[in-house]
């Protein structure tokens, strides 16, 4: 078991990698905000919770991670590097126009990328299908961690899938919602405010936990807690976390880092670690 400090160090490295990828992607820009909000969640998953083996990536008993909010691709790539699936060179070249590591991940199980993303609202349905397949194969050990965005929860297809997950009693599915409070069009609350997200998930029959999505200890606690129904973790996060000029700024959903901003961001990250 890793210490909280070790997980925080891992998150720090991942955040640096995300900034490097964003910077190298050049003027077309990259999805920085929603990648930075998901860092600690991925660090705890890949650093401690999930079972996998990069030397045997197709191992049947592995846990699956489904990046449904696929614009968080850079965070996933950074986690996959920490996990040993991607190399330093993969990260250095990602998003550069010729690399297979695109703005939205493309399925590559050998490299730990379970599904292609880019069309929101589809990951949970896929997870339900995977869970059913596992049930059929009597694979009782694998878990499926699926990460959704809070904006993504506007999609009716999410609720179609949610009902299925409950109906089929798929307790191996663990849903993490990156509640960063912002979507492409602006604050989630403004685009489509209706009841609370917690009520909606519990109304659908899930056990809902709320946690600070940047606190590795609390995330771990939430992930380890046993629940009666399939679990949803609403992780409250900050879009653009760790980089002052990107935090809570919708324009950093996708934008490009100038050399000056890149330097400033790296400096800020370093300062936080001291």
């Amino acid at each position: 078991m890793k210490t909280g400090k070790e997980l925080e160090d891992m998150a720090y490295e991942m955040r640096k990698d995300v900034l490097r990828m964003a910077y190298h992607s050049g003027k077309k820009g990259a999805h920085l905000g929603g990648s930075l909000s998901a860092i600690e969640l991925l660090a705890v998953l890949y650093g401690e919770i999930m079972h996998y083996n990069p030397k045997e990536p197709l191992w049947e008993g592995r846990d699956r991670f489904i990046m449904s909010k696929a614009h968080g691709a850079m965070a996933l790539y950074a986690a996959l590097k920490q996990a040993g699936f991607l190399s330093e060179a993969d990260i250095a070249g990602a998003l550069d126009g010729t690399s297979p590591y695109y703005e939205h991940p493309q399925r590559n199980e050998e490299k730990g990328i379970e599904i292609s993303g880019g069309s929101l609202g589809q990951g949970l349905s896929l997870s339900v299908g995977m869970g059913l397949a596992m049930q059929k194969k009597r694979n009782g050990q694998s878990k499926i961690y699926v990460m959704l965005g809070d904006g993504e929860c506007n999609e009716g297809a999410v609720w179609e899938a949610a009902a299925s997950a409950i109906h089929f009693g798929l307790k191996q599915i663990v849903i993490l919602v990156d509640v960063n409070g912002l979507q492409y069009g602006g604050p989630t609350e403004k685009i489509l405010r209706a009841g609370s997200l917690k009520d909606r998930w519990s109304g659908m029959g899930f056990s809902v936990l709320e946690t600070d999505g940047h606190n590795v200890r609390k995330i771990r606690e939430a992930l380890l807690l046993q629940t009666d129904a399939p679990k949803v973790i609403l992780a409250h996060t900050v879009k653009g976390k760790g980089v002052s000029f990107a935090e809570n700024r919708v324009e950093w959903h996708s934008a490009f880092l100038t050399e000056a901003l890149y330097g400033q961001a790296m400096e800020e990250l370093g300062a936080c670690r001291k």
């Binding site: 009902a163 299925s164 409950i166 109906h167 209706a194 009841g195 009520d199 519990s202 109304g203 029959g205």
Partner: peptide, 15 residues
Amino acid sequence: VAGLDRLSEKAEAFG
């Protein structure tokens, strides 16, 4: 077939 129940709770949860 699909396990959808407690409709009033769901409708209220959706505002």
